[in-house]
């Protein structure tokens, strides 16, 4: 017991060695990406990084709870809506990185910029006795009865983007599509992994609105799945990097943002099968020129997000 207590004490000493000079980064998954970015950044600049790795929701919850004594110097979320909300509340430090020159205008503002983006796709299991889908609306067909899953837009920023995009492009037809899917037995089991796992294991056939990079990675690992981008158009789920205005390490935070947007940083993003924010960095997956994207107003959509989620809930009841 004495030894245990002694070890605890040592652990405490080690843990308190976090100094004020370090850069504190709160990042949503995937973890290997944030870890690789932090490591390469430290190697390049000598600035140590404290990385808190969690889900987008918990990153934001921790940021909110810490407002009396803010800790984070950089926030990376998987949900563009988070950045829009914080920006509207005036909580972000404006910064335009030189490295963001080749990032498309839709993925940068003066307050925040995308690290990269996921595209939203249909992912289907190829081992099942089921035709290959090509369009979103195909999934209302009898052949996909009780086969479809979808991430919950309330829990997945990516699924929310898809619903927003479809609704702004197709209007009421989009809500009709959602309720037809529901009538065809679609389930909405939770966040992204909860929607994808039943398809991987063959309990269900196809995900409506999957985050593509996870599925592309799994297909590369040998899973019997295919990723389809409908020609009628899909949406991107950009991953914002933000610097909270409360940071006391503004210079280091800006350097971190520069690094993530540098060719080296963007190559690390590409390694995780995520679409790099810069159009001049080669993607290891379907890139900017291969995707048909629905153009919609992210800021307006974010302002209406609550109404959109309510409309989704109504359509699936």
């Amino acid at each position: 017991m004495i030894r245990t207590l002694a070890t605890s004490f040592i652990a405490m000493m080690a843990a308190t060695a976090v100094t004020a000079d370090d850069l504190t980064v709160y990042s949503a998954g995937p973890k290997p990406l944030s870890a690789a970015l932090a490591e390469a950044f430290t190697a390049k600049t000598g600035i140590a990084v404290n990385l808190f790795q969690s889900t987008s929701g918990k990153v934001m919850a921790r940021y909110e709870a810490e407002k009396a004594n803010p800790q984070a110097d950089v926030l990376i979320s998987a949900s563009w809506g988070h950045a829009i909300t914080l920006s509207a509340a005036g909580e972000l430090l404006p910064y335009a990185s030189e490295n963001a020159m080749t990032v498309p205008d839709s993925l940068k503002t003066e307050d925040y910029v995308a690290q990269g983006a996921a595209a939203i796709a249909m992912v289907y299991n190829t081992t099942l006795d089921m035709p290959a889908p090509a369009e979103w609306s195909d999934l209302t067909d009898e052949a996909y009865k009780d086969m479809v899953t979808m991430p919950d837009p309330a829990a997945s920023g990516a699924a929310l983007s898809l619903v927003q995009g479809l609704a702004s492009q197709d209007g009421d037809a989009a809500w009709q599509l959602i309720s037809d899917l529901k009538a065809n037995g679609m389930i909405v089991p939770g966040a992204n992994a909860a929607a994808l796992n039943p398809v991987l294991s063959g309990a269900r056939g196809v995900v409506f609105g999957a985050v593509d990079y996870i599925a592309i990675g799994q297909k590369a690992a040998g899973e019997a799945i295919e990723v389809v981008y409908p020609e009628s158009g899909t949406v991107l789920a950009p991953r914002p990097i933000m610097i909270p205005a409360s940071t006391d390490q503004a210079d280091e935070a800006k350097q971190f943002m520069d690094f993530v947007l540098s060719e080296e940083g963007q190559a690390l993003v590409a390694d995780r099968m995520i679409l790099p924010a810069r159009t001049d960095v080669k993607a290891k997956r379907p890139g900017w020129d291969e995707l048909a994207l629905i153009d919609f107003d992210y800021v307006k959509a974010a302002a209406e997000a609550e109404a959109t989620i309510d409309a989704f809930t109504a359509a699936t009841e």
Partner: peptide
């Protein structure tokens, strides 16, 4: 606590 919008 974790879905948008976060409401602590």
């Amino acid at each position: 606590l974790s879905d948008w919008p976060i409401d602590l």
